[in-house]
Design a protein around this nucleic acid. Sequence first.
DNA 1: CTGCTCACGCATCCGAGTTGCAATTGCGAC
DNA 2: GTCGCAATTGCAACTCGGATGCGTGAGCAG
Lengths: 146, 146
Amino acid sequence: MVPAKLELKTRLREAGLRATSSRLAVLECMTDAQGPLTHADVCDRLKDAGFDRATVYRNLADLTDAGLLRRSDLGDHLWRFELKGDAEHEEHAEGEVHPHFVCTECGAVACLPDGAVTLAAVKGAPRSLKSGKVDIQVRGACNDCG
Amino acid sequence: MVPAKLELKTRLREAGLRATSSRLAVLECMTDAQGPLTHADVCDRLKDAGFDRATVYRNLADLTDAGLLRRSDLGDHLWRFELKGDAEHEEHAEGEVHPHFVCTECGAVACLPDGAVTLAAVKGAPRSLKSGKVDIQVRGACNDCG
DNA sequence: CTGCTCACGCATCCGAGTTGCAATTGCGAC
DNA sequence: GTCGCAATTGCAACTCGGATGCGTGAGCAG
């Protein structure tokens, strides 16, 4: 199960943010999420709770700034957010990256296990590749579509 | 450059599209372009000629559908179009993985040497990953931008 | 040349993301 | 416990890229 609400609250406070109910809800939502969620996804999940679109968006932005979330764009025109900071998804060792699998048919996005993709040092490759400051996308058909 | 125009016209017709003046202009624009252009870029270049935003947009979409252009998103929520070279970057032999490096700053697209990226067999990964029917994108800053 | 159809231009809509502002709320200070 | 300030929310309106419906005009086959 997910960390207790209290722990989430602490995480927020440590990040220098007020632990408001909406932020807790957003953070909890992201914690529960399997893969990256779009802004709209999070909005839908929280709309029932009465949180505003703009609020959710601002929360996602705040949490991203605070380093609790990671924001990425996977080739459609939507921001995707995913939890960052617990264990697996943190900054990786040399050559390790956090790859996403993007289904070119249905648009589903999933995180591949770290280690599914490795970067080899190749001469002539951009520096950012060595430093691991890259986002890896594997595009293909998912099991449902392929 | 008159012969060139004629050739462009032929290309359009062969793709099953009418060779209208706007389409010729768009195609010419893309041919002259160095890197990928956004919809807005193309619009600006052609606005003087009196072409409408929507027309340019539809032309870009048509040309993309017809296989003359490639459309991609580099992470900034703008579609970029670039001339699609003859089959160079397209379909590979079965089992081949051909990674691209995409600069999220300037939009440059470079091919990484095969082998720069390694896919490991991981349980739970989509089948298409194993069969190699995937496109690998490495997104980051190129040496000029980073 | 003629007609059918496709494509253009215009206006308009749409949806994601962003912002200004007044009302509300968290939280440290008292 | 409660006070007050500043961060934050909710609302609405706005921006901006992209998409579309429709009447008119242009391409191309016959």
